[in-house]
Amino acid sequence: MEAVTYSLYGSDAKGTDKYYEDIERFTDEVIRRLEKEPAVSQFSSYAAIRHSDSGDPLVHGLEFLMLGVLWISYGSRAAFIHKYGGKLLAGVYGWKTRGDRIRAIIERTKGTLNPFLLRGPQQVEPKVSMNRFADLIGWLQATGEFEQESRRMSEWLVFLKSRSREDGKRKLSQAVTFGKWFEARSREVLGRHTANVELYIDKNNQRLKWKENMIFCTRGRAEYHLNMVGAEIMNRAFREKFLNTEQKRVLLPICMREKGEAGCRAVESEHGYVCRSCSKDCQVKIISDLGKKHDFQVFMIPHASTAFGRQSIQPGKVGIVGVACILNLVSGGYQAKRLGYEPQCVLLNYSGCIKHWHETGVVTDIDLSRLLNRIQVGTTG
């Protein structure tokens, strides 16, 4: 399959083993460097005092990295909208989960606003300051694409402001420096898997100008690499609690289904669409059969915003394996965790949905052995 933006197959299409070897080694390298950053351990101590659940230090390290990457990617756009304007727009976009008609109205509004409020020209990287960091968080909220990330960045802003002015600014600068190292190093290690990102953006720039998904679809390679590493870190951090849950669910994107001549006959349920086995070659059908065999539930989700519903559940009861394209991984993990689920994730081998990436849509797939490894069952027997 030719990559639209990314491909876990790289250039040889012989399998995904090389990608998973690359990401495991590189994540180890990132973690070793993060362990030497005093801001990470200090934030973990601060979180332990501020919250009853302090979170995982591995994830705090991911957030330090995220801070740097997002600053480099969008810091120069932060001045285009005030932080309170960002909160207002984020609240409007939150209505997307309330039904298809409301979602359609919100998306049209978002497409109209994007070029004027959000897509300022990329300029020289701004001078590091707390005020600009607060503006960046407002911009992230205003896009409607970084709800979970902006929540975590807001916690970091409070932490940095709790330090002396000099120390807070120094830690912010250290995160930006770390982000610059990551941007260069991740391209060396993971760049073979994201070689088409810039080509896709250049080819589709004008088409996307008035689309509600403009910001999402024009995100750069560093953000793909951030989500790759972020998914690996989250899988490690949340693994034990996931395995101890009473119930396991696998959430598949709708772009994985093979429609066949008669079309997909999946039926809607409380948690998503359930496969009716209408196509023997459909990977959704294959995974659903594995679920019956190994005691996990499988649901198709038509839209990322509806993946977990809006209601929290009892923590520790349900483990979720979310299957998604790269740019949805970290935000999905945070959202699941915030609602009480214990998440793991598996990457789509490539992107291809008709909503974001491909004019007619292509059927996507995953490495089944990676899914079964997340569930902790064998591939045979």
Rank of each mutant, 00 (worst) to 15 (best):
L118F: 05
Y74T: 08
S162A: 10
G191R: 12
E198M: 14
R98W: 07
G352Q: 08
M153H: 07
Y84L: 12
E155F: 03
D295W: 01
H303N: 12
L157E: 14
E246G: 11
A134I: 00
H51L: 11
Q247L: 11
V40I: 11
P315Y: 00
Y93F: 14
R265A: 15
A195S: 14
D202E: 12
S288G: 14
S369E: 15
G85S: 15
T97V: 15
N328S: 12
S288N: 14
H193Q: 11
H271T: 02
Y341C: 09
V189T: 13
W156L: 03
V189G: 07
A104K: 14
S150C: 06
R338S: 15
S54Q: 08
T16K: 04
A231T: 07
T306M: 13
S164N: 12
C282V: 02
Y93P: 02
Y334F: 15
K292V: 02
Q311E: 13
E63L: 13
G332V: 03
D22W: 00
M300K: 08
P343M: 05
L290H: 06
E21C: 08
I81K: 12
R207W: 07
R119G: 04
L199C: 03
K285H: 15
L89F: 02
I81D: 10
V267F: 15
T379W: 01
V229A: 03
I287R: 09
T218K: 05
E212L: 01
E212D: 06
V69W: 01
P253F: 10
L89H: 00
T380V: 13
G309S: 08
K127G: 05
F178I: 00
S164W: 07
I106D: 02
C325E: 04
G55Q: 02
L252K: 07
L372Q: 07
G260R: 10
L117C: 07
G309I: 08
Q42H: 12
I254N: 12
G55T: 02
